[in-house]
Nucleic acid binder design. Sequence first.
DNA 1: TATATTTGACCGGC
DNA 2: GCCGGTCAAATATA
Length: 248
Amino acid sequence: MEKNKKQLIETLSRGMDSAKKLQNLLHHKSPNIINDDGLLVSVDDLANEISQSFYRSLLVLNSCNSGRLPVTAAGHLNSGDQPAVKRRRGSYKRRKTMDSRMEVSDTIEDGYAWRKYGQKEILNYDFPRCYYRCTHKQVHGCKALKQVQKLEDGSNMFQILYFDHHTCPPPNTYSHPLDLDSKNSPYSPSTITNKHIDPSQSCNKVSSVSGAQSPPALAWKEILLNEFECFKKDGSLSDMSLDDITFS
DNA sequence: TATATTTGACCGGC
DNA sequence: GCCGGTCAAATATA
């Protein structure tokens, strides 16, 4: 784990470094910048470096988590010898986390790929509540959840409650720079199969996080910081602080 | 055949 | 004991 932690720090540090360079670059409105090695670096290069930082960090975190519980090929937890009778299920903690946000919308679509895992009749509600988790939970360990409740005011509006944050790539805004063979990449568009994704947004894989479509470097920095906080909440970085990450 | 959805059962908080 | 959240087998769909 110590090795993974060091790897994670290095990877995130590189990402932060690239974000800062991108910030400088955008600030000077220059298409390129000379890096420490005297090489010309473009906005694309920096954005790609940041993306790689995220991807590698997630790989490190996933490799840490995979050691905790053995998983069978079918994706089920292998808890050892099971009784012949129905296997006891895990502990279902009723969520108390305040890491949630609510939206009211006329559509349940938000661009992300969600997988429905339950539906429940709720007391005093005419319409059932539907429970969704991120489709990429298995791949990225993405913990994002949402609950959809149709409002009863006849407006055809939905109250949508989101829990936790996506650790998978945002929809329609991400192209993995290492994705040389997209079929082998966890970010391959082929893994995004949710039919609810807006077909008008014809491609989940954009040219790259680059050019005019790039978020400002400041936003990248905020994203990195936000992800860091998420990892800390997970407990993955429980013994780390931001001081462990170097800012150049 | 693989993946997504449905739905009854299970579980813990209140 | 009730109720909301989750699991997982059965079923549907591409």
